[in-house]
């Protein structure tokens, strides 16, 4: 299966989903005018990726310093999809939510995602300089 690589823009994060290392990285800010234009290819890739997974260790690193309200729903959907993989297929997926120490908004958003995900390992990680 192909990797998914998308360059960052001023209002969308970079995507680097590596199928050999099983590390998925999203990094940047996310506040496009139309989130589904951005998220559709990501979700369709993710669906295929989850289908072919067995018991590999998968790490998902998100470093999203700012996102708008429509991205908030998209991120929850993204996490719920991963959680589905854990619950229904026994996938071994861990999410790391990385944030700057002085970015209390990103920290709070991370905490609230964590509260909403019962079965997906979700770590809040302060970024090291």
């Amino acid at each position: 299966m192909d990797n998914l690589k998308i360059k960052a823009t001023k209002h969308t994060p970079s995507i680097n989903f590596d199928t050999e290392k099983n590390i998925l990285v999203l990094k940047g800010e996310c506040y496009p005018e139309n989130i589904s234009e951005f998220s559709t290819p990501i979700f369709s890739w993710l669906t295929d990726y989850l289908k072919q997974l067995t018991n590999e260790v998968v790490i998902v690193n998100l470093e999203i310093s700012y996102f708008n309200s429509s991205t908030s729903r998209m991120l929850l959907e993204f996490f719920l999809k991963l959680e589905d993989g854990v619950v229904k297929n026994g996938n071994n997926i861990t999410v790391n939510w990385l944030y700057d120490e002085d970015n209390d908004s990103a920290e709070e958003f991370g905490e609230e995602f964590e509260e909403d995900l019962d079965s997906l390992p979700f770590n809040l990680v302060v970024k090291e300089d």
């Binding site: 989130i35 708008n68 309200s69 429509s70 908030s72 729903r73 998209m74 929850l76 609230e112 509260e115 909403d116």
Partner: peptide, 21 residues
């Protein structure tokens, strides 16, 4: 959180979460 789990309102073009946020 409740609204975030729901599909957006039919009139909404974003997530309908903007005002709550």
């Amino acid at each position: 959180k409740e609204q975030r789990r729901k599909a957006p309102h039919e009139k909404s073009k974003g997530a309908g979460l903007g005002f709550i946020e």
